Lab assay of single mutants.
Amino acid sequence: HFTSQQLQELEATFQRNRYPDMSTREEIAVWTNLTEARVRVWFKNRRAKWR
């Protein structure tokens, strides 16, 4: 589960860029205190939901 702060950060990034690269995902991981893998999976799932 994600905190509302984490989701806000993830959503804001998603609005700007639906396909963040590795370095962007790592930055998000640092800001949100999540692993890069969790961030990558979140984006994958979010893109699926967005379609």
Rank of each mutant, 00 (worst) to 15 (best):
L7F: 05
W31P: 01
F43A: 00
T3M: 04
S4N: 11
F2P: 05
F2N: 02
V39N: 00
R18F: 06
T35M: 03
V41P: 00
V41N: 13
R38M: 15
R38C: 14
F43P: 00
L34I: 06
Q8I: 12
A29S: 06
R40P: 00
P20H: 04
A12M: 11
L10A: 02
W50K: 06
V39H: 00
T13I: 15
D21V: 05
I28R: 01
E27W: 10
E11I: 05
H1K: 13
L7R: 07
I28M: 03
R40I: 04
P20D: 02
Q8F: 11
Q5I: 11
E11P: 00
R38V: 15
R40W: 05
Y19N: 07
R18Y: 06
W42P: 00
E11G: 01
L7G: 03
L7E: 10
A12F: 10
W31A: 15
A37M: 13
E26T: 12
R40K: 08
P20M: 03
K49C: 09
L10S: 01
E26N: 12
I28D: 00
R51F: 13
N17V: 08
R40A: 08
P20G: 02
W50S: 08
A29P: 02
I28C: 03
D21E: 04
R47P: 00
N17R: 03
T35Q: 04
N33Q: 10
Q5G: 08
D21T: 09
R51G: 07
W31Q: 15
A48K: 14
E26Y: 11
E26R: 14
Q8E: 12
T35G: 03
V30W: 09
W42Q: 03
L10Y: 01
T32S: 06
S4C: 15
S4D: 11
N17W: 08
A12S: 10
F14M: 03
R25W: 04
L10R: 00
N17I: 09
L10Q: 00
F2S: 03
H1A: 12
N45D: 10
L10V: 00
R16F: 09
E27K: 13
Q8A: 13
T3Y: 04
N33W: 05
E27C: 14
T24F: 08
R40G: 05
S23A: 14
R47A: 04
F14R: 02
L7Q: 07
T35S: 10
Q15A: 11
Q5S: 11
R18P: 14
A29K: 01
T32H: 07
V41T: 12
M22A: 10
R18N: 06
V39E: 00
S23I: 11
K44I: 15
K44N: 07
A12C: 14
E26F: 11
Q5W: 15
R46F: 02
N45K: 14
R46A: 06
N33M: 07
L10F: 02
R46Y: 03
V41W: 14
V39Y: 02
E36S: 05
A48R: 14
L7N: 07
W31K: 15
R51S: 08
Y19A: 04
A48W: 07
T35A: 05
V41K: 14
